[in-house]
Design a protein around this nucleic acid. Structure first.
Lengths: 226, 226
DNA sequence: TCCTTTATGCAGTGATCGATGCATAAATCG
DNA sequence: CGATTTATGCATCGATCACTGCATAAAGGA
């Protein structure tokens, strides 16, 4: 609400509504703060005034360091992805089977989307930015590409599973990947609406509980089911 | 894009950039047009200028008829729901079993979210309005309530299925309803991202293909890793 | 120490936001 | 026909949007 000048550190030699050059700001920290704000409020609803306040820098410094609001958002989205990508894909990559990979992806998404171990904003920044990108076609395309990346990774893993033999050759990996991606997108909406971690974990579990039936493995591996 | 004044009916006596009272506008038609615009662009990104152009009325008339942008959006959301609710819930209500109901809901959602029989905007107006409602807490609550309504309907149907006997008494209807709701929310995201009807139909099919497995095992944790 | 560089706070740019006052003229009624 | 009502287009309001010019003063090199 207020800036930091309302309660100055008192021990400071100069009270610092001063004009000159106070201190070089931490670009990464400022970017992290901007990312968090964009993540919470979305692109359109976040104003430059909001950003400068949160980032703790002046308007001029923001433009000198990041160019424009669009460029800052693009960089924030990249920062978001590179910083938090591991939360969702690490266990996925280590998983032995396609099913375990998909389950790990959805489970870890459930955790990440409800704040993770840290105090992260809820929901997925890229997914929730779907609306409000009208008139910013360049950014819209960037967001779309970011979301599409998830599908590609899922499909590639499922395709590999066919070679590995833990997915039937008849399985439709495109549809499978689309399904998992769709569930994760829905989880982002639910998380933003206040869903807690348990709820999202339950969704992940239910989504894949019929895996063998979905993929066709049921004919060969689930014969004697209770 | 253009209003109807660009090509006047030619038989008109005056060419009508006139000052006075031209004709009483159709309130319902104007509301329908506003709804469509909000649906496509979202609340924040839709300006009063956009609305007056699309609705074919002047600024003063808009405020006289609808009060404010907030009130217009609220009325548009209500119009949206009452007008298109049947597209998604009609077959659901007629379905004999919980599974058929859920499948009908997701299948008809797939159709509605890709334009239906008419040329509707893709995706769900209420779902996609998740972000951008910051600072408009009243509208945000309205949207949230609209989304929550879907869950209530699903859960009530599943609860009834327990009495009917087509769902196990041990089935967790809350988790089940959350899962279906989550899949539908994800479909809205996918639809806005360009997913076609076939893709969403496939998602609906996959989501419920493991139904018997899901509903039978939901309480006593899943046992089945291969 | 002096000079250049550089990041800053502040004021202000034109544009657009949601919303409103006003004169006008079609519709309505006596 | 004449008086009243009413919906309109237009101009404009203050606020806020993304963004920039300017004077200032700390940091860094000589």
């Amino acid at each position: 609400m207020h800036n930091n000048f309302s309660t100055p550190p008192a021990s400071s030699t100069s009270i610092r509504p001063a004009r000159g050059r106070p201190r070089e700001f931490d670009r990464q920290a400022a970017l992290a703060a901007a990312t968090r704000l964009f993540w919470i409020k979305g692109y359109e609803a976040t104003s430059i005034a909001d950003l400068t306040e949160t980032m703790g820098i002046g308007t001029k410094s923001l433009y000198a360091a990041f160019g424009s609001k669009d460029e800052l958002y693009a960089e924030a989205l990249k920062y978001y992805y590179t910083t938090y990508e591991g939360l969702v894909w690490t266990r996925f990559r280590k998983a032995a089977t396609a099913r375990e990979a998909a389950l790990a992806f959805l489970q870890d998404s459930a955790i990440a989307m409800t704040g993770g171990d840290l105090d992260l904003p809820h929901g997925c920044m890229a997914t929730l930015a779907t609306v409000g990108s009208e008139g910013h076609s360049e950014l819209g395309e960037l967001m779309r590409a970011t979301r599409a990346g998830g599908f590609d990774i899922l499909k590639a893993r499922f395709d590999r599973a066919k070679s590995d033999g833990d997915l039937e050759a008849t399985a439709d990996t495109t549809k499978l990947a689309r399904f998992v991606q769709t569930v994760q997108s829905g989880m982002a909406i639910r998380a933003r609406d206040g869903a807690d971690r348990d709820e999202l974990h339950a969704v992940a579990e239910i989504a894949l509980s019929g895996w063998d039936h979905i993929t066709g493995n049921i004919d060969h591996r689930m014969q004697g089911k209770a």
